[in-house]
Nucleic acid binder design. Sequence first.
DNA 1: GTCTATATACAGATAGAC
DNA 2: GTCTATCTGTATATAGAC
Lengths: 208, 208
Amino acid sequence: MGERKDKAAQTQAALKDAARRQFAEHGFLNTKITDITSAAGRAAGTFYQHFASKEDLLQALLADMHGQAGQAFEGDDGPVHDLTDPAQLREHLAVAWGVMRGNRAVMIALFESALADGPNSGALWNRLTADTSMLREHLEYLSEQGQALPGDPALIAAAMGGMLSMLAYALPPVATGSAGGDAPGYTDTQILDALSSLLLHGLAGPGQ
Amino acid sequence: MGERKDKAAQTQAALKDAARRQFAEHGFLNTKITDITSAAGRAAGTFYQHFASKEDLLQALLADMHGQAGQAFEGDDGPVHDLTDPAQLREHLAVAWGVMRGNRAVMIALFESALADGPNSGALWNRLTADTSMLREHLEYLSEQGQALPGDPALIAAAMGGMLSMLAYALPPVATGSAGGDAPGYTDTQILDALSSLLLHGLAGPGQ
DNA sequence: GTCTATATACAGATAGAC
DNA sequence: GTCTATCTGTATATAGAC
C-alpha cells in the first residue's frame, strides 16, 4: 500500500471516528460537515475527497456496523430459534439490544436520516423492517411450526423492534449527570428482564 | 369580538391548519415557514404576528391536540382500569392508537422536534413519558393491587408507548399508492388485535 | 492529499409601507 | 393586520493554491 493511499485511509478513518463522536453528542442533523472535519483535525474541503455527502458517510458507518453486528450473531443457528423459550428470547433480545446500544450514534443517525425523508416516504418502515429481519424470520419459523402468534410475523417483529429501538433512542447512554431532564438510570439487566418478561408472557403473566 | 380580532383569529386558524397539512406531508423539520404561509394564502411576515417561531406554533398545535385527546378519554374511570383484562387493555390501546393516528402530523412533528434537541437532551424520554403517563398510572395501580408486572411500571409504560408510537410513525397513514417503498397496508383492527394479544399474553400465548 | 478561501443557496426573522 | 422587501446567519459544496 503506497504512502499516499495509507495517508488517505488514515484520514478517512479519522473522519468516520469523528463523525460517530459528533453524531453521538449532537445528533446527525445537527452535525455540520465542518464539525466532523474539525473534530478530526482536518480541513473542511478534505471531507469531499472521501465522501460525497453526509448521507454517503452515514452509509459507510452503516456498513461498518453490519460487519460488527455479523460477529455478534455468530454462532446463531439461523431461524430455528424458539422465541417462546425464555432463555432463547432473552438471548436474542440481549444481542439486539447490545448492538443497538453499542452503536447508538449510528442508529440514531440512521433514524434521523429516515425521518428527514419525510413521513410518507416509507423510509422509517424500511429501517424498522431491515433492523428486525432476523426477528421476523424466527417468528415465521415458529408460525410454520404451528405456534399461534399474536399476529402477522412481520407486524409483530416490527412492533418488538419498535419497542426496542425507541427505548434505545430515548434512554440516554449512561448517567448524563443532570443534563436536560429526569431521564432514568435503568441498567441493561433491568431493561432486558422487563422486556423479556413482557414479550414472553405479556401483562397478564405466565399463569392462567 | 372586534373585526380586527376576528380577522386575526381567522388567519391564525388558517396558519395552524396549513401547518398540520404541511407537517403531514413533508414533516416538521422539512417544512419552512414560507411553506406554511403560502399554503395558508398569507404573506411570510404575517407568521410572526401570531407565533414567535415554528416551535411556538407546534406548542399551539399540541395544546389543541390535548383538548381533543381529553374528549377521547372522557368516561375513563381513572387509574382503576385493569389492563390484564382483555377488553379493557384493548380499549385503552384503541383510544391511544386513535389519538396518535388522528394526529399523526402533530405527533411526528413533536417527535422530530425532540430529536432536534439532541440525543442526550432527554427530550425524547420526556416525550415518551408524557405520552404514556396514563398508561403508567394504570400499571402503578395494578402493581399496588398486588399484580405482578414484568418490570417497573414507568419502564413498561415507556416500552408499550414506544412500540405504539414507533408503529404510528413508521406506518404511512393510508394506502399511499406505490410511493417510496413497500410499506404494508395493515388495518387498525389488525394492528390492535396483534398488539393487544402480544401485550396481554406475549409470544408464548395464554396457555401454559 | 490536504489546505484556505469562497461561491451558492436557503432558512429564519425583521423593517417599513399599505 | 397584512403585505413586500430585505437583512442576517449559516450550511453545503467547489476552486485553486500548496
